[in-house]
Design a protein around this nucleic acid. Structure first.
Lengths: 123, 123
DNA sequence: CTAAATGCAAACTATTTGCAACGAT
DNA sequence: ATCGTTGCAAATAGTTTGCATTTAG
């Protein structure tokens, strides 16, 4: 556990949202100006492999990262790209019943139009 | 509808799997050697916007493309990266009940270990 | 002490884009 | 004829990597 890794973890804990690697890098530099972008990417990858965090592949733009807590899905607006958590119940259980083995994790992205984008379209 | 676009569509129809843009490009060149990589990418993006096909963001490597038929999920093996379709029932209905608006599409990737990778680990 | 992690910069992969020429309608 | 689409090549975005140096355990 290096200082760099602790800092990255801390930033993710304090930050509610879904940060990209570069956003985490920028926040990290505020507290540790010498930290390298590569270090951030390397640590995020390691933490993902340890399943301390989850990588969210986005329809547009860079990946985002989520500290893994309760499994949940994401609502993605095709209009503006906004992202929100959404609870999902029973999915893992159902899938495990079908495949007969453990689900290690899942990524669910629901594409929809958020209220703001919907009202823009109807104008 | 250009010859190029028709060819790309046809390759996707004939090909059962989950091709990457470059795999489609390679197959397209067999029948139309002059086709440009950019043309393949452009058409795939347009077809995705028209929702004729779906883009699958992969945990590793390039995106893959799926001709959209019945909505379904994907089983991704964290060991070897293999990808398989899996039926999903009731998910869209459940989500729409929660969010109160239409689900345009979704992407569900279940991470697991396929039988082959599981038996390698236990050795 | 030593194995693992860092900083730096260069390399790489996947994808996008500007532009002149071409082709579908 | 016109406007969207192509081929080409260069550009970009995001991420990874090699290597000498530093740091944690």
């Amino acid at each position: 556990m290096t200082r760099q890794r602790a800092l990255i973890l801390n930033i993710m804990r304090e930050n509610p949202g879904h940060l990209t690697a570069d956003e985490i890098y920028a926040l990290a530099r505020e507290q540790m100006p010498g930290i390298a972008r590569g270090t951030v990417y390397r640590n995020l990858k390691l933490m993902e492999q340890d399943r301390e965090i989850a990588k969210l592949e986005m329809p547009e733009g860079p990946d985002r990262f989520d500290k893994t807590s309760a499994p949940h899905g994401h609502l993605y607006c095709d209009g503006c790209g906004s992202l929100q958590d959404i609870p999902v119940i029973g999915l893992v259980r159902d899938i495990e019943a079908v495949i007969g083995t453990e689900v290690r994790s899942y990524q669910l992205t629901i594409h929809y139009l958020c209220p703001a984008c919907r009202s823009k379209l109807s104008q």
